[in-house]
Each structure stands twice: as C-alpha cells, then as structure tokens.
C-alpha cells in the first residue's frame, strides 16, 4: 500500500493508505483524530473541514495521498499546549455558537480561514456567504455569525470595524 508522509498538528506521520483512502479517513481512522467529523457523502455539509497548508478544505474531498508532504491542522491542533483556546473557539463558546457540537469543528476551521482571508474587515453578509459550505441544523446560524464577527478583531488584533459590529 502507498505511504503518505504528512504533518498533522505539528507532528510528523508516515501512514500506509489505500489509493482511495480519503484524508478524513486517514485523520479519523489512522491517527484517531476524531474531532473532524463526516456529516455527508457529497461534500455539502462541511463537518470535515480542516486546514491543509493554511487553507480550509473539506477533508472528505481530498485523497490522503494528495496530502503527501502537506501540513494539516485539525480542530485538535488549534488550542495552545496549556489548553488556551484559539480566539475563534473562545468566541464560539462566548456566543453560544454550538449546540450538539457535531458541525462545530468544521465550522470553526472554516471560520478561521474566512477571517484570515479578510484582513480588512468582514461584514455580516460576507460571513453568511463565507459559511456557504457548512451546514448546521441546531443553531439557525445566528450565533455562529456573531461569534465569527467577534473573533475577527481578536484574530487581527484590531478594533471591530463598524460593519461587523
């Protein structure tokens, strides 16, 4: 079986996979990183979003072998070693942006990329549009949008722009 070598949450791994093994299967089944979830089979729900080389991708839509040599970050890799949460995780908690928690890892990973990609500000409309690839059945999105708006200034070390306030 082919071998994939990749870095996940800062740790290097070499794993045997089948050619058809998906990145999400490698993460969940080979590396026991079960924080990344599978919610559908058509790349619609976004529960499996992780970062590959800094950008959010749906890990159900990428073959494990395509991640050879890549640096992957999953939900488990966001908090600091002492347990301090990433500002996005903290704002999700503060704004009650999760209920059952199943879509949450993918939501958080998508949201971080969305904020990173908008250094000059992020409107509510842009947030809602930016979440197009993530389904949540519990929250009605209301509080997720609020949490992301609140994380923006924390992540960019700025005051919230008027549009996002």
């Amino acid at each position: 079986m082919p071998q994939v070598t990749l870095t996940v949450n800062g740790k290097s791994h070499s794993v045997e996979v089948e050619g058809r093994t998906l990145l999400v299967e490698l993460l969940r089944e080979k590396l026991a990183l079960t924080g990344t979830h599978v919610g559908c089979d058509t790349s619609q729900c976004g529960a499996c979003v992780v970062h590959v080389d800094g950008r959010s991708i749906k890990s159900c839509t990428m073959l494990a072998m395509q991640a050879n040599g890549a640096a992957v970050t999953t939900i488990e890799g966001l908090a600091q070693a002492d347990g301090t949460l990433h500002p996005m995780q903290e704002m999700f908690r503060e704004h009650h942006a999760l209920q059952c928690g199943f879509c949450t890892p993918g939501m958080v990973m998508s949201a971080i990329d969305l904020v990173n990609m908008h250094p000059d500000g992020l409107t509510e409309h842009e947030i809602r549009e930016g979440l197009e690839g993530n389904l949540c059945r519990c929250t009605g999105y209301h509080n997720i949008v609020k949490a992301i708006a609140a994380a923006w200034p924390l992540m960019h070390n700025k005051q919230a722009p008027a549009a996002a306030a």
Binding site: R28, E76, G101
Partner: peptide, 21 residues
C-alpha cells in the same frame, strides 16, 4: 451561563458513537 459541555466540543474531544472503536 456559558455551557460546560462546550470545552470538549470546541477542542474536538466530543465522544460521538462513530468516534468509538
């Protein structure tokens, strides 16, 4: 009150059935 269960969900340490092996 902010939720007690959120810590594990946000850290990716929820324990859903498919996570059980």
């Amino acid at each position: 009150v902010r939720r007690k269960e959120d810590g594990r969900f946000l850290a990716g340490r929820g324990n859903y059935v498919d996570d059980i092996n």
